[in-house]
Design a protein around this nucleic acid. Structure first.
Length: 141
DNA sequence: GCCAACGTTGGC
DNA sequence: GCCAACGTTGGC
């Protein structure tokens, strides 16, 4: 099953906030590359939640509760007439038993091609299957 | 359509 | 607080 990684600034919307709400609409993604990744998500796909800022760790998981859809708060269209922005509903998943830090990821050569390392500004990215397995093992043992 | 100027993100 | 990387904007 495909997996993705979502970044969030914990002072804005943390994994803990998400757990409290149980389900939330993930909006505010504006970057074209991040939107391409977001639009490729299917219901049931696994999401790793990463805290930027002072934490810089993967703190837990979530699950796509549905398909991506146009952002009702930002109805702008592209030149082709397609919705410019998309959002997706996420159900909160599990708090990591062992959070995984960016430093750990960077020090592991298996992650050397991972977008989190290579494109530090990308906020939504696919996680390849082999890395999904490795990350899951590291988070939950 | 190009590109310089400017703004933003996020790691350090 | 700084700055590299990258996106966006606007004048031409």
């Amino acid at each position: 099953m495909p997996a993705y990684l979502f970044k969030t600034e914990p002072s804005e919307f943390s994994f803990q906030d998400h757990v409290k709400k149980k389900q939330s609409c993930w909006d505010g993604v504006a970057n074209p590359a991040a939107l391409i990744a977001l639009r490729s998500i299917c219901k049931g796909d696994e999401i790793f939640i990463y805290h930027t800022g002072d934490e810089k760790t993967i703190v837990g998981t979530a699950v796509a509760a549905g398909l991506p859809y146009p952002d009702p708060k930002r109805p702008e269209l592209t030149a082709d007439g397609a919705p410019k922005f998309a959002v997706i509903e996420l159900r909160a998943g599990h708090l990591a038993k062992t959070p995984l830090s960016l430093a750990q990821i960077k020090s592991d050569p298996r992650f050397s091609d991972f977008a989190l390392v290579k494109q530090s500004r990308l906020s939504v990215m696919p996680v390849p299957p082999d890395l999904t397995k490795i990350i899951t093992k590291m988070l939950f043992g």
